[in-house]
Design a protein around this nucleic acid. Structure first.
Lengths: 320, 320
DNA sequence: TTGTATGCGTTATCAG
DNA sequence: CTGATAACGCATACAA
């Protein structure tokens, strides 16, 4: 009766009512742990994210939580701190706890490991980053296209020395954005200067350090393309500290756009991602696997980006 | 042996090794669900937050997750969306799942309900908001003091008509900040104009709408004190839309300070909170309860704030 | 329709 | 030291 299957077992209404009212009287609440053990289903999704305090992931997490709840799932949150060891450990512990599925924005080289999980029938969805060659469903942005457009625009404004502060070099998002950047330069006949492609991770500190160094070069870049929202703030900090201004001394473009961008000292030109859709699709892709054949799921989705031009880039043609 | 209690049961080393190596060979992983059922302990903490995409809560959540993990706990994340119904439902479901404790930034009037949980021995910690009169441990900022200082400073600069955009009126943080604001005004001999105390929640939209209205008044306020980071952005949006500037046309102070503040068009004066400490203390307070006597725990902690003055407030004395 | 028995995987107890 | 057994609370199959 408590399971809502009174009908199925053709329990008399009188009995059903008696059970229900007595249950309410003593405040009976079903123990989900016991249920989970019995049914081998926890209604829990593991969410492993490099940095939940990053506004991008925080926004995605919110959507995922909301969407998951609608479908009756809980979120077990793990912040891998962009640390492969913590990430691996988190996955292990989550699996011990019999989560029903995993949504992860991977940091380490765990493609094969995730693929193995998936092959064994365990639902996995990648967030923001994917593994080329493996068929694990993912949701990401059209990183190449977004970076390509942004870089092309900088070129059109006369920039030739454009630096690129990338995030975690091993991540697909970073790689694809760098590719887009390079392709745009090559297309414009600009030689790639590898010393202008810098950065190790998506942290503010990284943006700061790399920008510091870039600004000290004999031939200082006229524009900086920063591939993460935190690195962009790091870049701004370094620029400000050096007594320089955007865009007079250096133009700045950021991948990833958020509500603060237009209110900055110099409104920031940025490649905007469909952040809300990230969460929606992630849960959808996971749910499709939970629902039925874990393997018969589309291999991934790339969401279009939008180039939002604001005052942070300068036209070198007109200005001289 | 697998439980690490070989010693206790005086198992021979040989046997222990045999068991351990065989376990590794077949890849044995203990089922935490079964363990949880048996032990009545899930090593899971429920975290219920009004909006995980708000940078304040996101930052706190990160600290909580990190700190909890250190102590072997997992985080079950629920976003109540500042909706009391969702909040209540979340708590109910979390308890069905036998979480070991709850960290919550409450939205609704659930003080008595939480107190009852606590009285029954269930560990609870309040985040950012507390319930006066009840003895549920909490961690919050010295909201009154922080708001008092900020308002006093505005007065010192010659402001007399200072609006206050509060958040959720029922929350202690909002109430205490408004009290600090009022106390400062009263102390300066300024009459409280209730039409200048506005706002219903901590959303961007709220800040926007209320600022729109404030700016239309015949006697427009010379300064706005916004009690949340999102409402501050709403205020900025409305001010910008009205073709006005900060601080020339209106001064702006925000409760809650983050990394972007100094990079805004007009660097934002703000009351800075010790965000990282929030998470630390929350987990500590919870852990003290998990550890021992749930009731023998300090009743709460208020962390000092820091007034960070930037260009967003104008001196009416000197300027004329 | 209703009552009863079994097992999910661990842990604890207790007798050997 | 070791093996057998019960119990955590629920869901299901089967007997009544």
């Amino acid at each position: 009766v408590l399971g809502g299957k009174a009908r199925k077992y053709r329990i008399s209404e009188r009995t059903e009512d008696r059970v229900l009212s007595e249950a309410k009287r003593i405040g009976f609440t079903p123990n989900q742990i016991a249920s989970s053990l019995r049914l081998r289903k926890t209604n829990t999704i593991g969410l492993v994210i490099p940095d939940i305090s990053n506004i991008f992931f925080a926004t995605v997490a919110r959507c995922i939580e909301t969407e998951a709840r609608k479908r009756g799932y809980f979120i077990m949150l793990c912040d891998s701190q962009e640390n492969p060891r913590i990430e691996e450990e988190s996955i292990r512990l989550l699996r011990n706890r019999n989560i029903d599925g995993l949504i992860i924005s991977p940091v380490g080289m765990i493609g094969k490991s995730l693929q193995a999980m998936r092959d064994s029938g365990f639902p996995v969805v990648l967030l923001d980053r994917y593994f080329p060659g493996l068929d694990i469903p993912y949701v990401t942005s059209e990183n190449h296209q977004g970076a390509y457009e942004a870089t092309k625009r900088l070129c059109a404004l006369g920039h030739r020395r454009i630096a690129c502060i990338r995030g975690l070099p091993d991540s697909s998002s970073s790689r694809d954005r760098v590719r887009g950047y390079r392709d745009a330069l090559v297309e414009q006949g600009i030689e790639i200067d590898r010393s202008l492609i810098v950065g190790d991770d998506f942290s503010e500190r990284c943006g700061y350090l790399e920008t510091k160094l870039l600004l000290q070069k004999r031939k200082r870049p006229t524009a900086i393309f920063s591939l993460g929202n935190l690195t962009s703030f790091g870049a701004m900090r370094a620029i400000k500290e050096g007594g320089l201004s955007v865009p007079e001394d250096v133009s700045l473009v950021s991948f990833d756009d958020h509500y603060y961008s237009e209110f900055l000292r110099t409104p920031l030109t940025a490649v905007s991602q469909q952040v809300d859709e990230f969460g929606l699709f992630a849960v959808k892709l996971l749910y499709d696997q939970l629902d039925g054949d874990a393997k018969a799921v589309e291999d991934g989705i790339s969401l279009p980006t939008k180039f939002v031009e604001r005052a942070s880039i300068r036209d070198l043609n007109s200005g001289g």
